[in-house]
């Protein structure tokens, strides 16, 4: 077993039943080299303070539950390691730009609504049944959308996006990336429906290309690209309708 050291973890605490505003509490946590920030939090919950509240599940960076801010950087706590912060103390806070429900737990309902708003499913050109057999799709066609399909909905990108923080009507990075994922799928014919979301003020036009969303994405989804490419599409859509006012309604 590697050597045990002690790190100070400062956690934002907020109890909706007791507190008017959040405060901070610091814990001394013994850790070994392979311990993640999540395991540090679990140590606190198991041994020091059972009331510290946070979400987690898969502990292997695929379920998207455990996002939080460590020293103002949005991260997945399960794949960030205490050794990388030691000897400095670390400050753990809930994801920025979301309302705090309790301690490190944020209210994600707004995001879920946004996800639902982008027609996030395949809209086939004509109805299919399993009896029709699978569609053909070449590896290259898959490449067109597979990157955007890697999103685990961990919300780090929303925590990185000041535009969402300033105005949470903005549809935001992950939802718009998912929109781009379905639009780029060769099996999909739902682009027209989704264009309405793209074209809206709170669609791609809420983005000013800060770009941090793509940098913090643990799955390299690159929402900034998804959004800004759709600005071009939206612009084309805006002007082309004047050129061809008829025949686009079909």
């Amino acid at each position: 077993m590697s050597q045990t050291r002690t790190i100070m973890i400062e956690c934002l605490r907020y109890d909706p039943e007791q507190d008017q505003a959040p405060h901070y509490r610091t814990y001394e946590v013994p850790f070994t080299d392979e311990m993640s920030v999540l395991e540090g939090l679990q140590y606190i919950k198991d041994h020091l303070d059972g009331s510290l509240t946070f979400r987690w599940s898969c502990r292997m960076a695929i379920c998207g539950s455990c996002g939080c801010m460590v020293n103002h950087q949005p991260i997945l706590s399960c794949q960030s390691f205490l050794r990388d912060y030691y000897p400095a103390r670390i400050r753990v806070e809930p994801l920025e730009h979301f309302p705090i429900v309790k301690d490190l737990v944020i209210d994600q309902s707004d995001f879920l609504g946004k996800l639902e708003s982008v027609t996030p499913y395949l809209v086939p050109a004509q109805p299919l049944t399993p009896e029709d057999g699978p569609n053909l799709q070449t590896p290259r066609q898959i490449e067109d959308y597979l990157g955007y399909a890697q999103c685990i909905n961990c919300l780090l990108c929303y925590a990185a996006c000041p535009q969402y923080g300033l105005n949470n009507a903005f549809t935001g990075p992950a939802a718009l990336a998912l929109l781009a994922r379905y639009n780029a799928d060769s099996r999909d014919a739902g682009q027209k429906t989704r264009m309405e979301v793209v074209n809206a003020e709170e669609g791609v036009w809420g983005c000013t290309l800060v770009g941090l969303c793509s940098e913090v994405c643990p799955k390299h989804v690159d929402p900034a690209r998804a959004i800004n490419r759709n600005k071009i599409n939206s612009t084309q859509d805006y002007f082309l309708r004047f050129l061809a006012p008829f025949g686009r309604g079909s």
Partner: peptide, 19 residues
């Protein structure tokens, strides 16, 4: 809906060098 706490956005650019 549970009572939630919304953090202010004042001086948000101080929070990250990328900002």
């Amino acid at each position: 809906a549970p009572k939630t706490y919304v953090r202010p956005m004042n001086r948000w650019w101080m929070r990250h060098p990328a900002y």
